[in-house]
C-alpha cells in the first residue's frame, strides 16, 4: 500500500512539469504587451521599452521559461506585473476563500446527493424517483453563471434575504455562492449513487441479506451503500475538478476573493506571472485530490492496491 501511494505521488511531478510547459506556451502565444497595459492610452516608446526591460520581457522565451521554472522550484512564483506583489502572496491571500467555497460545496453535494440517490434507488421509478431524476437532470443543465445571477435576483433583490456578493463575516454570505457552485455536484453525486446502488442491490449477497429478514434500511446502509461508495468516491473527486472550473465563474459573479476570480482578473490584465502561478495551483490542487481519491480507492478496494505493488 505504501509503495502504491509513493508511486502515485511521484507521478504528480512529471504531470506538473508538463502543465508548466503548457501554461507557459499559452501565455507566450497570448497577445498583449504587459508594458502597454500598464501605460494605457498614453505610452511613450521610451517608457514602454524601460518597462519591458524591467519585466524581463526582452529575454528570449526559453530563458524566460527557465528563469520562471527554477523560481517555481524554490516556491518563488515571481511578482505580479501590476501590483509588484509576490505572486505567492496573492495566492496565499486568496486560496483560503476558494478552498472554503469548494469544500463547503462538496459537503453540501455529498449531504444532499447521497441520500437522494439512495432513496431513489430504493424505490426505482416511483413518483419520488421520477421527481429526483427530472430535478437532477435539470440541475446538471443549468449554467453556473446564470444560476448565480438568478439566485441573486431572487434572494437578494426581490426577497432581500441574503447579501448579494462579497465574503463577509456572517454565514449569510456563503449561501448563494456555495449553493450555486454545489448544484451540479449534488446532481452528479445523486445520479451516480442511484445507479451504483441499483447495481449492488441486485447483487446476490444483498438479496441474501434481505431474504434473511434484515430490515430494509439496514441492508441498504450496511451492505449496499458501502459497496456503492467506490464509484461515488470517484465521482466526488471528478466533481472537485469541475468545482474548480465552476469556482472561476462563481467567484467572478459573487466577487468572491478567491483564486478563481484572481485567474480571470489576471488573465484580463495580462498579468502573466499571476496567471501562471494560479493555473499551476489549480492543476496541483486537482492532482492532489485525484491522488487522495486513488488512495481512498485503495483502502476501499484493497484488490487495486495489491495490483499496483
Amino acid at each position: 500500500m505504501f509503495k502504491y501511494i509513493l508511486r502515485r505521488t511521484l507521478m504528480i511531478i512529471p504531470v506538473m512539469f508538463g502543465v508548466s510547459i503548457i501554461v507557459f506556451s499559452i501565455m507566450l502565444l497570448t497577445p498583449g504587451d504587459p508594458a502597454r497595459l500598464m501605460l494605457g492610452e498614453r505610452a511613450p516608446e521610451a517608457q514602454l521599452e524601460a518597462i519591458r526591460e524591467r519585466l524581463g520581457l526582452n529575454e528570449p522565451p526559453h530563458i524566460q521559461y527557465v528563469n520562471w521554472v527554477s523560481g517555481v522550484a524554490q516556491l518563488d512564483f515571481g511578482r505580479s506585473i501590476r501590483s509588484n506583489r509576490p505572486v505567492i502572496n496573492e495566492i496565499q491571500q486568496r486560496l483560503p476563500a476558494t478552498i472554503e467555497l469548494a469544500v463547503l460545496a462538496t459537503l453540501l453535494a455529498v449531504a444532499i446527493g447521497i441520500p437522494v440517490g439512495v432513496l431513489s434507488a430504493m424505490r426505482p421509478n416511483s413518483a419520488g424517483d421520477n421527481v429526483a431524476t427530472v430535478t437532477t437532470f435539470t440541475m446538471l443543465a443549468i449554467p453556473v453563471f446564470w444560476q448565480g445571477l438568478m439566485m441573486m435576483i431572487i434572494f437578494s433583490v426581490w426577497l432581500g434575504w441574503l447579501p448579494a456578493t462579497g465574503r463577509g463575516q456572517s454565514w449569510q454570505y456563503y449561501i448563494l455562492p456555495v449553493v450555486t457552485l454545489g448544484t451540479s455536484a449534488i446532481a452528479s453525486i445523486a445520479r451516480m449513487t442511484r445507479s451504483t446502488m441499483m447495481e449492488t442491490i441486485k447483487l446476490d449477497y444483498v438479496r441474501t441479506a434481505r431474504s434473511k429478514g434484515l430490515s430494509g434500511m439496514r441492508v441498504v446502509y450496511g451492505h449496499a451503500l458501502r459497496n456503492a461508495l467506490l464509484p461515488v468516491v470517484t465521482i466526488i473527486g471528478l466533481q472537485f475538478g469541475s468545482l474548480l472550473s465552476g469556482a472561476v465563474i462563481t467567484e467572478t459573479i459573487f466577487s468572491w476573493p478567491g483564486i478563481g476570480s484572481l485567474a480571470v482578473d489576471s488573465m484580463r490584465a495580462k498579468d502573466f506571472p499571476v496567471v501562471q502561478g494560479v493555473v499551476l495551483v489549480f492543476a496541483f490542487a486537482y492532482a492532489i485530490v485525484n491522488l487522495l481519491v486513488d488512495i481512498a480507492y485503495g483502502f476501499l478496494d484493497p484488490r487495486l492496491a495489491t495490483r499496483y505493488s
Partner: peptide, 22 residues
C-alpha cells in the same frame, strides 16, 4: 478587441474607427 491588442494596434494605425476615453 482585447485591451492590450487594442492599444498596440491602434498605436500602430491598423484600425479604422475606435472608441476610447480620455
Amino acid at each position: 478587441v482585447e485591451w492590450g491588442t487594442y492599444l498596440a494596434e491602434t498605436a500602430a494605425g491598423n484600425h479604422d474607427m475606435f472608441i476610447l476615453g480620455w
